[in-house]
Amino acid sequence: MRQGKIRYIGLSEAPADLIRRAHAVHPLSAVQTEYSLWSREVEEEVLPVLKELGIGLVPYSPLGRGFLTGQIKTFDDLPADDYRRYYERFQGDNFAKNVEVVALIEQLAAEKGVTPAQLGLAWLLAQGEQIVPIPGTKRLERVRENLGALEVRLSADDLLEIERISPKGVAAGGRFGTF
């Protein structure tokens, strides 16, 4: 920071008490953690603290590692060397349950004339003004699609409907896997 090479500081996957302690040592600009329609743990303690302290939130895997895009219909859609094969939510019964929820999200997205990815990102953006998701993709066309989420306006009814079809804790399986 002295050389001006680092201008802002953040933490990744930090619990609320660590965020408070770190922020007292040096102001944090952002905290990064997984946050999406099927990973909402951050809403319990972390997000309230970030709002209180004026710290940004940068959600990673905002589309559940691709699952919430609706592009992955079966386990075999994942290439043999795909790391997601080791994640609980992509396996067996969990996959079957999760894909049902995604089907409902796809249906709602279609009704609104948007893609499931755009709906998922728009929902995330609606959870707070200080939220900046970082969907990952290798392809520019996906970047373009994701940016479309910024044009999606969700009404209070839309948000309630999303909550109904994809309530907190809906995902079957833990956030991570075993390698």
Partner: peptide, 10 residues
Amino acid sequence: AHDMSVTFES
């Protein structure tokens, strides 16, 4: 320059 550094800390 890097504009932001995020530490992985848990």
